[in-house]
Design a protein around this nucleic acid. Structure first.
Length: 156
DNA sequence: CATGAGCGG
C-alpha cells in the first residue's frame, strides 16, 4: 500500500512537469502574470438593481453571450454585486472587457477582469493578499457591517 | 432606508 502511494506520488510528480499534464492545480498556475485567456469575464461593481437580463443586454453587442450569472445573497436575496459573463469567443470577451471596464452601468462603474479558473471540486485560490492581518472567522454581524461571514483564508 | 470589496453553482 505504501508502495502504491509512493508510486502514485512519483507519477504525479513526473506528470506535473510534463506539458501534456492534465493535472489541475489548486493554486494559481505558475507564471500567471499574463491574464487568463478564457471567454469568461468577472464583472464586479454591479448595481444591486442590475439583473442578469440587463447585464446580458449590456454585453451582447460585443458578441454572442452564452451565459450570464449574477450571484445573489442567499438570505437577503439582494445581488452580491458581481457576476460572470461568458462569451463564445474570447476575442469578443476581450473587446467587451476593454470597452466596458470602468464604464458605468445604472450609475455605477463596472470592474471587469477575466474570470479566474475555478478548479472543479476544489477551492478557488485567489491571488490576493489583502485581509491578512484582519482575519475574521465569524458569522455574526458587527455594528456597521453588512456582511460578516466566515472567512476562509487561502493564499498563493 | 441603507451601498460597495471581490471570483460562484
Amino acid at each position: 500500500m505504501k508502495n502504491s502511494t509512493v508510486f502514485l506520488a512519483r507519477r504525479i510528480l513526473t506528470n506535473v512537469n510534463s506539458p501534456a499534464s492534465r493535472l489541475r492545480s489548486y493554486c494559481s498556475p505558475p507564471s500567471s502574470s499574463s491574464p487568463p485567456r478564457n471567454n469568461k469575464l468577472f464583472v464586479g461593481g454591479l448595481s444591486w438593481s442590475v439583473d442578469e437580463r440587463s447585464l446580458k443586454d449590456a454585453f451582447s453587442s460585443f458578441g454572442e453571450v452564452t451565459e450570464v450569472n449574477i450571484l445573489y445573497d442567499k438570505d437577503s436575496g439582494r445581488s452580491r454585486g458581481f457576476g460572470f459573463v461568458n462569451f463564445s469567443k474570447e476575442d469578443d470577451a476581450r473587446s467587451a472587457k476593454d470597452a466596458m471596464d470602468g464604464k458605468a452601468l445604472l450609475g455605477r462603474p463596472l470592474r471587469i477582469s477575466f474570470a479566474l479558473e475555478k478548479v472543479r471540486g476544489g477551492p478557488l485560490v485567489v491571488p490576493r493578499l489583502s485581509n491578512i492581518g484582519d482575519v475574521t472567522n465569524r458569522n455574526t454581524k458587527l455594528p456597521g457591517e453588512r456582511y460578516a461571514r466566515g472567512l476562509i483564508l487561502t493564499w498563493t
